[in-house]
Design a binder for these strands. Structure first.
Length: 426
RNA sequence: GGAGAGGUGGCCGAGUGGCCGAAGGCGCUCCCCUGCUAAGGGAGUAUACCUUGAUCGGUAUCGAGGGUUCGAAUCCCUCCCUCUCCGCCA
């Protein structure tokens, strides 16, 4: 959420910055509502003040044993006027709040102009895509040949966009999780954290999935308004919702493995083959809470932590900065890491690292106490995938495939695979 | 699933209709005293918003949302959460 005061006082500047995202702010509407709000709020507060002071008078008169009947009469008229004023105000306030809650974050200055994915700008590239001297298979065929990846059974169990893994492939999948968590906690200073996979609406509002993106979520069918998490970002970031933490505890860095559940509504034709786009996938997520002045550097660091994983796995990738049109609702700046997929002859997203400034923190009321001033201030939040497990598995199956259909196991994963060095065709 | 207790400020904890944004204590900050790793005295110490040049001032907030009342932390209703005991269970 943007600062309501900023929206009010610098409406034109805000609108202009939002244009980069292709978001049209309804300036006139906001101005008009704001005008009304102001008048109504003052009116309402005046009436409340009057009521409060008269009520106090009644209390005193009663204590003094005086007749309070005339005083009661005086207040009588206030009641109607006040409740009218209150409902007027709350109607306008609600409308304004809804609008402000629906405004996306302002993109950072360095975010490039652009409408879509096509306009994202490559920042760097790492590794050389391997050249194959045999006919390569995509991960679906590699996995099938290994006897460890089965989409038919998954669709029998549940439906489309799910996978069943068995044997060494399942183990490799688990190894990736262990390897990533160990690396981030052991080398990058993150604390491991375990969280619920089901969250309430307040949490989803806090990180920005609600109210605008409900169709991306799986909602539980009971009367408690609970949802499956679409990413660990939601529970982990909301750990600090409605909290004020000591400045000396910052920065706070969490690494978290969870499954992620996404309904993928509106992506019917896309990536239907294989496990690129699933309703359920595993991810190791990195989340940081930092002081405002440190968030720019923190995004670079966090992205670097995700890159480290790709480098240790020796997977070629590139880093792009998302353009205004492709950046997420809550994000002020996002780097995507895209891994090389030989079967698609292109780079595909495997991690998305974002800085949110105080946008999420304001929605969540996540604050720290400034040791110098003693006053609470909004935190800055960041997160990034480090990495998406399913897609990493895909990348390994494809990049490490051999002519005989087997795959080599990256060295860093071998300790988690009982020392196995390759997975052979069943 | 059954029975009961409770949710108040950074923490503990009073408060069952008005003078309560909230006693008292702890913690913290500043000052005084004291010359030593003690103690004592004083002042201050929630958040958001409105107003203001800045103060002053005003409004709201005592788990959440409704209601009763001139007036609600206090009464009523609904919901959420925590704790204890029993049952069940990975």
């Amino acid at each position: 959420m943007l600062d309501a005061k900023l929206v009010r006082t610098q409406l034109n500047e805000v609108a202009e910055k939002l244009q980069k995202r292709g978001y049209q702010l309804d300036i006139e509407k906001i101005r008009a509502l704001e005008e009304q709000r102001k008048v109504m709020q003052v009116e309402c507060e005046n009436l409340q003040q009057e009521r409060n002071s008269k009520s106090k008078g009644i209390g005193k008169a009663k204590a003094a044993g005086e007749d309070i009947a005339p005083l009661l009469k005086e207040v009588e008229n206030l009641k109607g006027a006040l409740s009218q004023a209150e409902s007027n105000l709350s109607a306008v306030q609600t409308e304004l709040d809804d609008i402000v809650a629906g405004i996306p974050n302002l993109p950072a200055d360095e975010v490039p102009e652009g409408k879509s994915e096509e306009d994202n700008v490559e920042v760097s590239k790492w590794g050389e895509p391997r050249s194959f001297d045999f006919e390569i298979k995509d991960h679906v065929d590699v996995g099938a040949a290994l006897g460890g990846l089965d989409f038919d059974t998954a669709s029998k169990l549940t439906g489309s966009r799910f996978a069943v893994m068995t044997g060494s492939v399942a183990r490799l999948h688990r190894a990736l999780i262990q390897f990533m968590l160990n690396t981030h906690t052991g080398e990058h200073g993150y604390s491991e954290i375990y969280v619920p996979y089901i969250v309430n609406k307040d949490s989803l509002f806090g990180t920005g999935q609600l109210p605008k993106f409900e169709e991306d979520l799986f909602k539980l069918n009971d009367d408690r308004d609970l949802y499956l998490i679409p990413t660990a970002e939601v529970p982990v970031t909301n750990v600090l919702r409605n909290e004020i933490i000591d400045e000396n505890k910052l920065p706070l860095k969490f690494a978290c493995h969870t499954p992620c559940f996404r309904s993928e509504a509106g992506s019917y034709g896309r990536d239907t083959r294989g496990m690129i786009r699933q309703h359920q996938f595993e991810k190791v997520e990195l989340v940081q809470f930092v002081k405002p002045q440190n968030s720019v550097q923190a995004l670079e660091d966090l992205t670097g932590h995700a890159e480290t994983i790709l480098q240790k796995l020796n997977l070629p990738y590139r880093k792009v900065i998302l353009c205004g049109g492709d950046i997420g609702f809550s994000s002020t700046k996002t780097y995507d890491l895209e891994v090389w997929l030989p079967s698609q002859d292109t780079y595909r997203e495997i991690s998305s690292c974002s800085s949110f400034g105080d946008f999420q923190a304001r929605r969540m009321k996540a604050r720290f106490r400034n040791a110098e001033t003693g006053k609470p201030e909004l935190l800055h939040t960041l997160n990034g995938s480090g990495l998406a497990i399913g897609r990493t598995l895909v990348a390994i199956l494809e990049n490490y495939q051999q002519a005989d259909g087997s795959i080599d196991i990256p060295e860093v994963l071998q300790p988690f695979m009982n020392g196995e060095t390759c997975i052979t065709v069943a």
